[in-house]
Simulated scan of single mutants.
Amino acid sequence: MTDGRTKDPRPIGRVAIALIWVALLGRIGLAAGALATIAAQDALARGDAATDALATASSITDAAALVYLATLVLAAGAVLRWIYIVNRNAHALSTALRITPLWSVLWFFVPVAGLIRPFAALSQCWRATIAPAAPEDVRVPPILRWWWAFWLLSLALDNITLRLADGRDGASAVTGAWVTIAGAVIAVPLTATLTAVILQLSRRQNAVLARRTISRFHMFGWQHRAR
């Protein structure tokens, strides 16, 4: 139950969770392609004929990349929409917030600041949800810090993978493949912690908004009877 200025974040949260797990499957597919690439490059290093193996690895990687990129775009859109909604709800709960709903999304695309400000935006939403009158007294939960740590590590690995993709030799291909596998490994706790953040904050915020709406309804009813 919410009023006209707020919105239940749980529906878009469920969509975001479903999409980030589908994107994880695409990332695991990339890791499978990376393993096939490593095996093919090892065969080449031994002097074996590995043309078919390289072609197979390339096919797996290309197919997984298409699935991953498509689902990643959809998942990112859903997660950013969820962030926008919880930030807007938090602003309706507390006047102490400094980062607007729009900037809680835009900061992700700003170089350097995107490594810090999005975390600050979501932290203020969490604190304002728990204690609207005094959000600064609320500690940021560990699950939020873990999610952001995994996110930053994932970004670093993706950046390394892109740089290694420019290499033409087998060594660069193998190194890039191992980094891709590492990225898939990190994506598992990243997805799990983001799921927990979405579920917990959505549930807490919806409960606060429901109590707030009920309180206003009762107050309106009391004022109406007083007349």
Rank of each mutant, 00 (worst) to 15 (best):
Asp8Thr: 13
Val15Leu: 08
Ala18Trp: 12
Ala23Trp: 10
Gly26Ile: 11
Ile28Gln: 13
Gly29Lys: 09
Ala31Leu: 13
Leu35Cys: 09
Ile38Ala: 03
Ala39Tyr: 03
Asp42Gln: 10
Ala43Leu: 06
Leu44Val: 10
Gly47Ala: 00
Ala50Lys: 03
Ala55Gln: 15
Asp62Glu: 14
Ala63Gln: 01
Ala63Glu: 05
Ala70Gly: 13
Val73Tyr: 02
Ala76Lys: 02
Asn89His: 06
Ala90Met: 01
His91Lys: 04
Ala92Glu: 14
Ala92Asp: 06
Ile99Phe: 01
Trp103Leu: 01
Phe109Gln: 10
Phe109Tyr: 05
Ala113Lys: 13
Phe119Lys: 12
Ala120Glu: 11
Ala121Pro: 07
Ala121His: 07
Ala121Phe: 02
Ser123Pro: 00
Cys125Thr: 14
Thr129Tyr: 03
Ile130Trp: 06
Ala133Trp: 08
Pro135His: 00
Pro135Thr: 08
Asp137Ser: 15
Val138Glu: 05
Pro142Met: 14
Ala149Arg: 15
Arg163Ser: 01
Ala165Gly: 10
Asp166Ile: 07
Ala173Met: 01
Val174Leu: 06
Val174Gln: 11
Ala184Trp: 05
Ala187Asn: 06
Leu190Val: 01
Thr191Ile: 10
Thr191Ser: 14
Gln200Thr: 13
Gln200Lys: 14
Asn206Asp: 05
Arg211Asp: 03
Ile214Gly: 12
Ile214Asp: 13
Met219Leu: 09
His224Glu: 07
Ala226Trp: 04
